[in-house]
Simulated assay, not measured.
Amino acid sequence: MGAEDFPDQQQRSPYFSEEHSMLRDVIRRFIAKEVLPFADQWEINGYVPRELLRKMGEQGFLGIRQSEAFGGAAMNVLGTVVLAEELGRSTFGGFAITVLVHTDMASPHLQHAGNPAQLERLMPDLVAGRKIAAVAMTEAGAGSDLASMRTTARLDGDHYVLNGAKMFITNGVHGDIYFVAAKTGGPGRSHGGISMFIVEKGMPGFSVARPLSKQGWLSSDTAELVFDECRVPVQNLLGEENKGFYSLVRNLQNERITLGAQALGEASRAIEITLDYVTQRTAFGQTLWEKQAIRQKMAMLLAKVEAARQLLYNTAWRDAQGQTVVAEVSMIKALCGELVNEVMYACQQFHGGFGYMREAPIERMVRDARVQSIGGGATEVMLEEVAKRMV
């Protein structure tokens, strides 16, 4: 068995159709041609070029879950899993999250809560990659605790006026459409007082305060956003006033499945890369693979990744059937976020000094993986979501 055998384990899964296999192959070929030769420069630049995202739109990758009426493929969450795994396998986490925030963390807010006029005006451009989306709910003092957000919106005639700031917003610098959460129900910690708004680049009072420098995901642009008496037309209210919390919670389920799939794609590729390395690198007259401790550790890591993958696939399939999978999604986010870091640590260790060099893909992958146990719901928060459903 060689590294090339591992992806076949995914394609043989009973949860996926021939359509999914074709999608996986097309995405993988696209990444090999359009991403891998150029992505090192994107890491230096700090963002993924808009031309690349438009190419992805032309290929249909940005509309996998969207309605055919807007140019999408109308697939279910299993299509997202295929996309996220393959983007994770690219080894460039910043590129992967740039795309996945647009497709599966931001755009679904419009898909689920947008009225016909909003969908008709905005969705075709999002599916085609002509405009890029971001979701702005996190604040410096309110991450997983959404009820603590301090950004407010008050009705003033035919506009809402937003005041506050959002932090750690992926696609924040180069985005065009922002789905912003703000308090409309007065002060306090009420979940019922949150509303969602469509804020578009150039609206008065909206600005990018600063791009943020990160440990990893270097090719994703991340920003702090400021709303200073930002006037948003009433027709840009997304869904019902004071019902935005439920929209956020609904989409967090999809976001966490997506992040789990990305993490497993990264972990699988790290194992493959490391297997290639240890079967060729010699030390003390043997390849590293001939060292029992190394091959047994890698075998156990593969077992853990495959077990997590089956949980992911089964949960995604159940979600597509309309079943309630809140606990399982939280398990996936906690498990995969921790597991990808365990895999990266061991794989870098087995690369020795070379694994610490910037020229080694595993060095970048280690940095990129660290946030997987933080973003989208920290491990500790996810475990609490599981624990409170155990009794």
Rank of each mutant, 00 (worst) to 15 (best):
G46F: 00
E18R: 12
P14F: 09
R309A: 14
E85V: 04
L126K: 01
I44W: 12
L119W: 06
Q372P: 02
H112F: 11
A153S: 07
Y15W: 13
T315I: 06
N45H: 13
G72P: 14
L155C: 07
P49L: 08
Q296T: 14
T98R: 05
S148L: 11
L311N: 10
C230V: 07
A299W: 06
A113G: 09
R370S: 02
R210D: 13
Q111I: 13
E43G: 04
T138D: 02
N254Q: 12
G352F: 02
E338M: 04
E58I: 10
E85D: 04
K388W: 10
Q321A: 03
E139S: 01
V249C: 10
G71E: 05
A299T: 13
A307D: 13
E342T: 07
A307Q: 09
K166D: 08
L302E: 09
R89A: 15
E34Y: 09
Q9E: 12
G143Q: 14
A360N: 13
F6P: 05
Q111M: 14
V391S: 02
E4W: 14
A360D: 15
L126S: 00
L23I: 08
H191T: 10
T80A: 05
A113N: 14
E359N: 08
A263T: 01
R24G: 07
G71K: 01
E342R: 08
A360W: 01
E342N: 10
L218M: 03
G216M: 07
A320R: 03
R54G: 04
E359Q: 04
S107V: 15
A387G: 00
R50S: 13
G205M: 03
V249F: 13
A69E: 14
V82A: 10
I194Q: 01
L146W: 10
A117H: 15
M105Y: 02
M365Q: 06
A307F: 09
G129D: 02
L53R: 15
R28K: 15
A360T: 07
A387W: 00
E4T: 15
I31L: 11
M123Y: 04
D176Y: 03
A136H: 03
T379D: 05
E380D: 02
V234G: 06
E18Q: 12
H20G: 04
I27C: 06
G157L: 13
H112S: 08
